[in-house]
Design a protein around this nucleic acid. Sequence first.
DNA 1: TTGAATGCAAAAAATTTGCATATTG
DNA 2: CAATATGCAAATTTTTTGCATTCAA
Lengths: 139, 139
Amino acid sequence: MADLIEVMRAKGMRVTAARRRIIAALTHLGHATPDAVAAAVATDGGPDLPSSTIYRSLDALEELGFVSHTHLDHRAPTYHLAAHADHVHLVCLGCGAIDQMPSAAAQDLVALMQRERGFRADVTHMAIHGWCVDCEAAR
Amino acid sequence: MADLIEVMRAKGMRVTAARRRIIAALTHLGHATPDAVAAAVATDGGPDLPSSTIYRSLDALEELGFVSHTHLDHRAPTYHLAAHADHVHLVCLGCGAIDQMPSAAAQDLVALMQRERGFRADVTHMAIHGWCVDCEAAR
DNA sequence: TTGAATGCAAAAAATTTGCATATTG
DNA sequence: CAATATGCAAATTTTTTGCATTCAA
């Protein structure tokens, strides 16, 4: 996190209280929707943050590369720190359960995309939808 | 599509004009946001469909398994017919370009998830984010 | 006939924007 | 001091819901 602060400054981006609190919330939550981030910072002792600040901060941090997001469920974008242990999400379409596997599981796919398309994929936190053992059995 | 109609009836689901038009729009468009579907049906000669009907129909068709959706970009869910040629989407975080590769490219990953977690993944139309050759070169 | 879907209007969510003010570097 | 970010209010955009009416089977 110390380096995150460094990079923010290096990029001319300001290290404000709001951003520190949002980063702290993400660190603590792991993954969170903008709404969940708002709820989290609301309980850290500081004043509530308007949603505009939440959105703008997440965007800024994402542009910087320290935060990214995926769509785990139907509607909400889920943000997380890039430094957060990287894994892919196995989202069950039946019960909604979310399992994880190390991103390395996708290394062959990544290599293939690189080789055939010159595409440098970021499969960190990628969401893969399907059916978990239990729901699959029930079908 | 004939079988789609059959299955709809078999499931006790009704084959209405609205649904036929929405299916036709998806067939024609390939991928489309609810908004794009609305725009498409608005030009097929019939009356405009209220967004509530668009949403409810897409949900119903998705539940049936004939339609599914992914999140290609930041905000909009993109729907497509399950029968639509299956591929994974390579979405560039830089320029937004969307390339495709056959879903088979992910077969190793699918096998791994199956083997280690009993998870039956549907990688059809899965979105993979990253950087295309050009944007990567520009970084 | 009768349950399923539609259409419409209104409500609820989610996200974005403008602008004056406060803060950071 | 100058540029950047915040806070707040308002506007957009997107999605959902209730309910009377219509339609498919």
